[in-house]
Write a protein that binds this DNA or RNA. Sequence first.
DNA 1: CGCATTTAATTCATATATTAATCTTTAACC
DNA 2: GGTTAAAGATTAATATATGAATTAAATGCG
Lengths: 163, 163
Amino acid sequence: MAMQDFSRSLPMRLYRALAVVMPRFRRIFAKAGLTEQQWRVLRVLWEQPSVPQSALVELTLIPAPSLIGVLDRLTVAGLVERRRGTDDRRVVEVAATAAGRALEERLMPDVQATYAELRASLDESTWRALETGLDELIRAQRPREGAAAAQARARHSTGEDIA
Amino acid sequence: MAMQDFSRSLPMRLYRALAVVMPRFRRIFAKAGLTEQQWRVLRVLWEQPSVPQSALVELTLIPAPSLIGVLDRLTVAGLVERRRGTDDRRVVEVAATAAGRALEERLMPDVQATYAELRASLDESTWRALETGLDELIRAQRPREGAAAAQARARHSTGEDIA
DNA sequence: CGCATTTAATTCATATATTAATCTTTAACC
DNA sequence: GGTTAAAGATTAATATATGAATTAAATGCG
């Protein structure tokens, strides 16, 4: 069962795809003094008046511990605001400030143009096959419902650490 | 030109694909006390007696400044060795030690099995379409030959900083 | 030969990722 | 109604990413 070349494994292809695609976008973000993660947060906040922090984790794919720092810096820059939820005081609601929202008009044109170029670099059928393949992969591998709970339960039941 | 949902953009789909795929692999690496990047380096070194560090950057997709630290830790762990090139004393040749090579047999079975599961979660045609789509994207976006050199040249000729 | 350029590593400063642990607030349940 | 467990956010420790700058060795060329 000859193992294929490591560089041709699916994960490495995914990493390489991002490595060739993202630098052009980051150059755009950098013009506004934003990192890629800061951009992602703003990009999501532009679509809604306010978003619970836990939802931001899912929508931006920024891990919770990292998001803390990203929001800290965005807050210091005056681009976002945090508020404690009124009914449930555990949740933190995040919203873009006026300055944060102003960046949308400044950045989206270039980003859209670059995205259009990206899309135009593949023919329509290949592009769609790529999107479909990614979606199916995500759906197939996405942790089953209740997996986390089941795992937590298991952790409490038996020994767990089999060195 | 209604912008699509951010989560459905190609970059976010790529990030999400990695996010759902890699955790299972990382759990395997962790059993041997390896991080994902340390694994990648070893995985490449298993295929050859020795690899120049610059080649490792390309093959593992670990940026040069990060690779320094990864190799430091692998060296301390006794899993790899560094040697200065004999003809060209700028290059650093990296090779796996006996201990480093021993990890191959310990890790590859689980990794292969998990990879097989991953592959089996999609039908053959979808899997291949995904691979093809990624390859075409990479080929289309890969910086053109001489782009770096041309860029460096341009940087020295004219003003460059157009704020 | 001697100098300007390139190449390969490395360093630096800052930002983010990963995993585990902690803390507070809710929800659940007897 | 009080105790226990779960959810959401945060902290902590370590590892890696990113972009700019630096160093040392090799190369091109007048």
